[in-house]
């Protein structure tokens, strides 16, 4: 797991906890209110709320109010962070390719 060593993040830390991962997974399946989340897990509602606060602070989950209900769902900016990583990766890879290609473009024989 070479890539993310260099960019430790709140998101990763937030998901280091198995209960928070379970909550995150639950929300990946569909948005849900605290009570719905708690029903599927062996933890109390207050505990779920506490975990949701951590996930929100890490930018992984967001909350919307629907009447008196608070609905939690995954924050699409999380995928945005992944996109940002890939963007940097491909920029760097293509720069590496250009340098390599310009050094070797007139070679006759190649080795793998």
């Amino acid at each position: 797991m070479t890539y993310h060593k260099s960019s430790a993040s709140k998101s990763l830390a937030a998901l280091g906890d198995p209960t928070r991962r379970a909550i995150f997974e639950r929300l990946a399946a569909s948005p849900a209110a605290v009570g719905e989340i708690a029903r599927g897990l062996p933890v109390s509602r207050p505990a779920v709320s506490q975990h949701l606060r951590v996930l929100k602070a890490a930018g992984l989950v967001r909350e919307t109010a629907s009447g008196t209900r608070h609905i939690y769902r995954l924050d699409p900016r999380g995928i945005g962070a992944m996109r940002a990583w890939l963007d940097r990766h491909w920029r760097s890879a293509l720069d590496g390719f250009r340098e390599f290609a310009d050094d070797h473009h007139d070679e006759e024989e190649d080795s793998r």
């Binding site: 797991m1 998101s11 990763l12 937030a14 991962r21 379970a22 962070a81 992944m82």
Partner: peptide, 15 residues
């Protein structure tokens, strides 16, 4: 079954 799989998404988005 609460899987380890979602950790994937987490690791990826966490970078």
């Amino acid at each position: 079954g609460w899987p380890t799989r979602l950790r994937n998404f987490a690791d990826f988005t966490g970078t």
